[in-house]
Design a protein around this nucleic acid. Sequence first.
DNA 1: GTTAGCAGTCGGGGCATGAGAGTGCTAACG
DNA 2: CGTTAGCACTCTCATGCCCCGACTGCTAAC
Lengths: 346, 346
Amino acid sequence: MITARSSLILNYIIGEYIARAMPVPSQLIANNADLGVSPATIRNEMALLEREGYLIRPHTSAGCIPSDKGYRHYVESIEDVRLPRDEQRLISHTFHQVEKEVEAWVSLTATLLARLVQNVAVVSLPKSTDSRLKHLELISLQDARALVVVVLEGAVVKEKLITFSEAVNQLSLTIIGAKLNSLYDGLSSRQITEKQVELTALEKQATDYLVTIMQVEDSKEYQDPYLEGWHFMLNQPEFAKSESARVLMELVERRGLLKVIVPGKFSRQGVHVIIGKENHDEAIQNCSVVICNYGVPDQAKGTIAVVGPTRMSYTRTIPTVYYLSSVLSQLVAGLYGSEYPEQQKI
Amino acid sequence: MITARSSLILNYIIGEYIARAMPVPSQLIANNADLGVSPATIRNEMALLEREGYLIRPHTSAGCIPSDKGYRHYVESIEDVRLPRDEQRLISHTFHQVEKEVEAWVSLTATLLARLVQNVAVVSLPKSTDSRLKHLELISLQDARALVVVVLEGAVVKEKLITFSEAVNQLSLTIIGAKLNSLYDGLSSRQITEKQVELTALEKQATDYLVTIMQVEDSKEYQDPYLEGWHFMLNQPEFAKSESARVLMELVERRGLLKVIVPGKFSRQGVHVIIGKENHDEAIQNCSVVICNYGVPDQAKGTIAVVGPTRMSYTRTIPTVYYLSSVLSQLVAGLYGSEYPEQQKI
DNA sequence: GTTAGCAGTCGGGGCATGAGAGTGCTAACG
DNA sequence: CGTTAGCACTCTCATGCCCCGACTGCTAAC
């Protein structure tokens, strides 16, 4: 339904348009695309591509700009999703210089990603699907108030201030903590609630808090991802009048980008691209999202994404998202004590 | 040097300008400000205020807009920095509904503040000036790798992945942990390093990690504050062309707003307002910052700030920042087990 | 199928015009 | 001396116009 040459021309137009942010004239294509044909021939092809819906003409006497369908074709024809070796090295080197903490990794990923692709990066923390208790610690603060620190499988640490029904000293708390640790070690929140044991009032209270924390952790999905790089996006001519940026920001900041995207169920492996109108939410229909899961199968997963105008550099963004997701996966795998499988292609 | 009536007129103009975002004509003042004089008289006063530098005229035949000096006068003359009782109740009610975690409080503060004042809110976590160890926990992950969880005075919890020089099991780690806890309980990082004790190789390594974590915690100032509400700011006509917003965002996101402000040394108590050119950094000289410290004296302090166009509602922003800082102070005081002193005025 | 040539179309910049808004000034008033 | 009415003046903004330049679509020839 589309000849090889049309496809070449289409991809050339899109590449140029991404770089110039202006309609691409036939002249330019004939000169630079090295097809050995004249502008007139190009124009014929362009007219065809326009009829087929791959191109849009802002007005009669102007060059073409790609439609969502055009971008889709362009993205599908990208073959190489690997970042150049030297860039890979540069990135992984940066990760070695940072503190060995999940938050630091994720935050760094967001910052790097935003800078590398000059758009907004969205990276969520890795989340266990069904968290299991690794360790529990109760620390007395004052009278009946205490701090409970919960360490879950995968080096997830959660703390919460709690208040017992009566004053307790550190010694009692340590004893309670020891008992609960031995009782609940390695269990999920559900298993803990189902466990039938004799507990004192205080132990019961501590257990309740523990279960609550674990349930909260299990239930909060895509909460508060790291957002970085708004100022890069504002640089794009698409967002010159800030009204357009505002709508998008409101969506991403307030309602949570990931919640909006998820309905798409991009559950398969690899990088996914959602272009313009393919997005469900209206506020983001002149944007594209490049998104990828990372994590360890059956243990924990997170999401890494880039949001930018549909006219973003996919050839740069896709490999970058892909590579960073694999780096994060490996780091997270270390937390769960498992090796991470070889990288796979899209 | 400025009569009572001039001052009234000036403040009226500024109030109007903040509301309308347009130059204020003499007509409007005469009609609404209830001074019992005609527009002509107002014009005379306006001419005076312009000569004195309180007002600026965008062009000859236009109303006036306030200069930074004018805003300064306006802000100084604000007397009531208390939020209405019912708003106070609404806010404190919201805090009761949220998880009892420092991060949750600070994040909520940023969100609330941004929404209440319709501008960007910047809130930093409370930071101890000289943190002391409350509890240490070592958790084995795999072979030589482990997780160290450090609880500091003030319910600050930090975790880090560490690697020992040799494989260690959980039992050994627990023993090491118990020993270090009894040795270092309540000490600062400096005191820990100065403590002369016989340690095994592993204990030495764990101590080093502990000290590093505490030093990092002590040294990182104003790191990664919670930012909220960019989309509100983009609504302001001042930022209609997103170029102006970009510069500001770059400053706040990349270089850290608080670092830029700090040189001003607003060490005293209460809310401070930095207007336009009073800011050191050029990128923010058409903005104002309303900023306030919170925390417990000598134990921990954080910062809460609002950034917006110089034409922001100071009468709303100042009380809101003030009240939220006192709420946060009280919450943080609870963490340190001390009562928080009565609220004081600016 | 490809190409040259040419007419046709549309956006954007430059410019003049006119209306409207609001002031500055002057002269009169109490 | 402070206040006021009246009026001329100034400047912005919106509108309309025109023309230029950029590209295309079409046609006819290769």
